[in-house]
Design a binder for these strands. Structure first.
Ligand SMILES: [Mn+2]
Ligand SMILES: [Mn+2]
Ligand SMILES: [Zn+2]
Ligand SMILES: [Zn+2]
Lengths: 136, 136
DNA sequence: CGCTTTATTGCAAAGGGTTGCAACAATCAA
DNA sequence: TTGATTGTTGCAACCCTTTGCAATAAAGCG
């Protein structure tokens, strides 16, 4: 089901701003930033304020339609949930980013549920450390 | 070995500001914020700027003397490495914080090292999700 | 001790993100 | 179609954190 439908059914209103933001979110395959979405939206609706983009992305995150991740750049990046689940290992020394499949976290997720009855939301993780090259 | 010694041996200079910050860091058993450290330091040296506290805590983090964690409050919190390792499960719904031992992450850490030669720095994690009460 | 070197600081500005508020507009019922 | 309701937006102000820069001062050496 489309994001537009989901929002509508949950009682949220569909504004031109939200529609444009949703379209921008869907055209990106990679990890997009708020600023990038804002630029695309502004190409069509120049008056749209960036706080609207922040608020909309926050809403989409709360509804589980996008994931939010801090890759260590000083900004937050987003990822449409339809584009697949994966995580990132980030080298604190050289900045290298290694992608890992979400299955790596499955045992941990299972243990947290069994031992703590905690349902971890691990849809897009960034783990910092040292890559192979950068260890001594 | 004391933090003061470590800093000195690495070639960093020991200033009254740094000494006061280190003392504040050591008196806290819990997760302290930059602001809290700044207040304690200012009680003795009123002219110390908060950016110095930010810079010093960042340095201590880079040297592995403290851990930095975002518990979802909108601020960063720190933890002296001597006070033991543990992690937190944070409920996105009710805000409950469940402490978990660092051993929960050992298998994952091992797997990342074996499969990706990646040495993960998992000294103080915050995992968001839903606690037992808040699921359904 | 005095001098040189250069790491560190205070300050102000900036950057990313959030928030209060009044104006606006999507929605729905009449 | 109109009006009432109330969710949403633009804007400005703010919060936390980082950063450039010139002034300061710690450290080491003669
Ligand atoms: Mn990703
Ligand atoms: Mn902790
Ligand atoms: Zn590396
Ligand atoms: Zn809860």
């Amino acid at each position: 089901m489309s994001c537009v439908q989901t929002l509508r059914e949950l009682g949220y209103r569909m504004t031109p701003q939200r529609q444009a933001i949703l379209e921008a979110v869907h055209t990106h395959d990679d990890h997009f930033s708020t600023e990038e979405v804002h630029e695309e939206v502004r190409a069509r609706y120049p008056q749209v304020n960036i706080s609207t983009v922040y608020r909309t992305l926050e809403l989409l995150k709360e509804l589980g339609l996008v994931t939010q991740t801090d890759l260590g750049e000083g900004i937050l990046r987003y990822h449409h949930i339809d584009k697949g689940h994966h995580h990132h290992l980030i080298c604190e020394n050289c900045g290298a980013i290694i992608d890992v499949d979400e299955s790596v976290f499955s045992p941990l997720k299972r243990e947290l549920l069994q031992d703590y009855q905690f349902k971890a939301n691990m849809s897009h993780f960034a783990i910092f450390g040292r890559c192979a090259k950068c260890q001594r």
